[in-house]
Design a protein around this nucleic acid. Structure first.
Length: 616
RNA sequence: GCCCCGGUAGCUCAGUUGGAUAGAGCAUCUGCCUUCUAAGCAGAGGGUCACAGGUUCGAAUCCUGUCCGGGGUACCA
């Protein structure tokens, strides 16, 4: 199991503090025993991070001991802090931590050299495995994401699920899970009836190129316009889908055409985004899986007919019944997701199955999960055979368009590709301005057109970052000037820092080894960087626990900022205090730090789905 | 109506398992490139944490109510 430096020190402090309490307050200790509040493990659990890093590596607030010990918090903090220091002075590991008390808090500092040695040593040894562990071994996690609709545009609205899911897939992989990333395409349903009707009616007069997704989208939009005026079109669409579901050859043929054109297009976009899947399937693949589940539900007496539709009454005032079949007998979205739940459980027996889908579908997933829970209950399955509690809806907010020019064109589709192209164009301008030689040397071209790969990496990085810098639940504002900003908190800022680190290592030209003089890394700025690196493994765990990759984004920004501070530092005379200098031991120590920072930033960028350029 | 989510600096957001003077970025203003990438760094100004009660030694954080915004509310997905 991977432990961090601060964990180790925290345990040492907690054990010593427990002893200090015992010796200082023998009466209270007698009364409560160490199984209550004075056990090292209880104290460890109370430890928190100081508001400001300069106050110490970690802290113990003692307010809650006040009543029990009949003393004021500052007094307790002061005496316990003193006692701990005394006890530590006698121990073998004497000087590794020290404490001081301030207004009810005991602040604990770690000895800088030890902190540096432990953390940097660990990163240099473990490299890209730093922060990884095996806690997920032999367990399968399914992550469903992207799940775009066939024959519809890949719009910016789909960006969030795609980016978020791709990142979660990688984060779980870091912990040794067998992760299965699933792209569950919306390739079935009444919408295809609409497409088919639109195609049959308008393809001729609109001169449609059926190989072009944008043309198909145009037909789809036209259908909705016409249906506004003529509701019978919707009936025709439902009819067409019904025929499709019954296996009508002509309908199937058209459906396959639409599907192939879309898939080709999607793969191109995924390639550009660097998004990967382990399984690409779709609702249509569940066609023969729905009846068996419906049969199970019927057998369990959970179904009923309401207004001519086949439903499951969820016995819940908060949830409407789950519809399995419409009046006309055709299936619905819920039917397919329920069938999918059953199928995936049977196939994978997952530890967790995550659905990365927008918050607007919260009720839909509650319904589907509830249906399965009721079914498992009714069938009396043993606990280990139930998926209940293992399936989760990983919801996220909308992508909002705050930009005025866009909102006035509300309803108009914004193609993701156009966003990516614009970002890449801007990145290219910037590269041309800063490092023109990179464009001249560039041999690899972008999938977006005639752009050098480096411009794509940066532009796409900026777009991905815009989706990964905000908490999941929150709506994210899509504001062109912010998405395309390459300064401050941005993807390119992280990438730039990575390029700078890479460049330093190259210029240094030294082999990076852990046998350096760690006492050369005890400065405040260096220590700040090292502490943030030390926190990284815990951040990864939190990101996995909360399904929140943005935590990684936030940590990388802190690390990059802290490092850039070291990089730009000036000495007393106002000269810049360089990483690489004539002082060989110092250069070696600093390059070891550079190398460790680069390892962590590269790893984090990978987990977020951004490229980590060596130069830019 | 009911249910879910959100409301923190001019803007976009962190901070919400209760803790120490509420933090970043953008924008505005002031500095810093003859040697390691200035896509950077240093600094300034900018706050009724939507509002009102409550719990607590301590509330942006927990509870109750109100207001504002977004979403959902069976035959779309």
């Amino acid at each position: 199991m991977n432990t961090t430096t601060v964990d180790k020190f925290r345990m040492q402090f907690s054990a010593t503090a427990a002893l200090a309490f015992r010796e200082l307050y023998p009466e209270a200790y007698q009364a409560t025993g160490d199984s209550q509040v004075f056990a090292a493990s209880d104290i460890a659990a109370m430890i928190e991070k100081p508001k400001d890093a300069s106050m110490g590596r970690f802290a113990l607030p003692v307010f809650r001991f006040s009543k029990l010990l009949g003393a004021k918090p500052p007094e307790i903090a002061s005496s316990v802090s003193g006692k701990v220091n005394n006890l530590l002075a006698d121990s073998a590991e004497a000087a590794l931590i020290s404490t001081e008390s301030i207004a009810g808090f005991i602040n604990i500092r770690t000895e800088p050299k030890a902190q540096a040695q432990e953390t940097i040593g660990r990163i240099l040894e473990q490299r890209e495995k730093y922060g990884a562990d095996n806690s997920g071994r032999d367990q399968t996690v399914l992550v469903e994401y992207s799940s775009v609709n066939i024959a519809r545009p890949f719009g910016v609205g789909h960006l969030r699920t795609t980016i978020l899911g791709n990142s979660l897939r990688r984060v779980f992989g870091k912990f040794g899970y067998n992760v299965v990333g699933i792209n569950f395409l919306g390739d079935w349903g009444t919408q295809f009836g609409k497409m088919i009707v639109a195609y049959q009616k308008y393809a001729g007069e609109e001169n449609t190129n059926k190989e072009d997704v944008k043309d198909l989208v145009r037909l789809y939009v036209r259908f909705h316009e016409e249906a506004e005026k003529d509701d019978s079109l919707n009936d025709q669409a439902r009819k067409a889908f019904q025929l499709l579901e019954q296996g009508d050859a002509e309908m199937l043929h058209l459906w396959e055409q639409f599907k192939n054109v879309s898939l080709k297009e999607f793969h191109r976009i995924y390639e550009i985004l660097g998004v990967e899947f382990d399984v690409i399937t779709g609702e249509a693949a569940l066609n023969d899986k729905m009846e068996p589940v419906i049969e199970r539900l019927k057998k369990a007496n959970l179904t009923s007919i309401s207004d001519g539709a086949l439903i499951v009454d969820l016995k819940d005032d908060q949830l409407p019944p789950a519809l399995l079949k419409k009046q006309d007998g055709a299936t619905l979205y819920a039917t397919r997701d329920i069938a999918g739940l059953a199928e995936r459980w049977e196939k994978y027996h997952f530890a967790e199955s995550l659905y990365v889908v927008g918050s607007s579908q919260a009720d839909h997933f509650k319904q589907a999960f509830k249906v399965m829970a009721m079914l498992e209950e009714a069938e009396g399955l043993p606990e280990e055979d139930r998926m209940t509690g293992k399936v989760k809806h990983i919801l996220f907010g909308w992508v909002k368009f705050g930009d005025k020019t866009l909102s006035t064109r509300a309803g108009k589709i914004i193609f993701l590709e156009d966003v990516l192209i614009r970002a890449t164009e801007l990145a290219m301008e910037k590269v041309a301005e800063k490092s023109p030689e990179l464009i001249e040397q560039s041999t690899q071209k972008s999938g977006l057109g005639d752009y050098p790969k480096i411009a794509e990496d940066i532009g796409v990085g900026a777009v991905i970052f815009s989706q990964m810098s905000v908490r999941r639940q929150k709506d994210v504002s899509f504001i062109w000037e912010e998405v395309l900003s390459f300064e401050g908190e941005s993807g390119p800022y992280l990438q730039y820092t990575h390029a700078r680190l890479s460049s330093l290592l190259k210029n240094g030209g030294l082999e990076i080894t852990p046998d350096i003089d760690f006492s050369l890394l005890v400065g405040d700025e260096e220590q700040r960087v090292i502490e943030l690196l030390d926190d990284y493994p815990q951040v990864l765990k939190d990101a996995a626990r909360d399904y929140e990759p943005y935590l990684i984004t936030a940590q990388l920004l802190k690390i990059a900022a802290a490092f850039n501070k070291v990089y730009q530092r000036k000495d007393e005379t106002g000269r810049s205090d360089k990483i690489i200098s004539d002082d060989l031991p110092r250069t070696r120590a600093r390059l070891a730090l550079v190398s460790a920072v680069r390892t962590v930033i590269a790893d984090g960028l990978y987990l977020l789905g951004l490229k980590a350029p060596e130069k830019m």
